[in-house]
Nucleic acid binder design. Sequence first.
DNA 1: AAGCTTTCCTGAACGC
DNA 2: TGCGTTCAGGAAAGCT
Length: 273
Amino acid sequence: MPELPEVQTIINELSPIIIGKNLVKIEEFRKNTLINQQNKSSLGQIKSIFRRGKYIIITTELKLQIIIHLRMTGKLIYTENPTSSSSHMRAHLIFSDYTKLIFDDVRTFGQITIAPLNQKIKSLEILGVEPLSNNFSPDYLWQQFRKRKAPIKNILLNQTIIAGLGNIYVNEILFACKIHPGVPANNLNREQIGAIVSNTVKILKKAIIYNGTTISDYKRVDNKGGEFQNFLKIYQKTRCPECGNTVSRIKQAGRSTFFCLSCQNNTQKTLKS
DNA sequence: AAGCTTTCCTGAACGC
DNA sequence: TGCGTTCAGGAAAGCT
């Protein structure tokens, strides 16, 4: 499922391809895929494409923003064949040179919002810090965590606190930090919060270098997969790579958590200093 | 305010 | 073989 590294990979690959192209229209093949379809003869030349959390934002010269969320199974596939299709094509972006970008989404949770550039988009407004920005600091997390008693796993998945983490990377981050996923966020000490910051940055950067993680559905613009699945240490594993013990599996916030009970056994009294 | 539950959806995997 | 059930999960809405 596309999380921050996967979305960043898509943007890195899409950017040199579509910037400067003239976007003629966006067609919908399944209703509720497009929000605020514009009835214009052209949506304008593509000016920029960037990421905020797991959202892809494309802006055009006509002062429009096209906001794409891939959710679990969404893909953006670029093709130079104007008649090509895909098995679960929900929409496509047509360019004036007859190339196009197909939005394919099996489980149909993904969405494309088209809005004026100056319009405030609530789902973007509420997002927390970017984990690869300077604002992502131990002090920021300390302030956020001290008022939260939900399990740290749930808190790291909360997009209003940190934007862009999903289930796979949160599992990997907590394993790297040797932190039990069930510990209340406000029980973590300064040292553990520091570890969360450094391991989050380290894992996300490495995952971007390897073009993201392809477990089932995530695909890059050219329909190739990423390679970071080869570096996963705990997600969907059965044996802990550190100690060899059987990996534990529980459900938190509706999602599978994988962890090693002996390596991530921080039940010692934590210090709140 | 924080946190919990429910809902959306399809295909793969599994059990009998 | 085939049918029914379970599971995968991001985000928003509704509620306490």
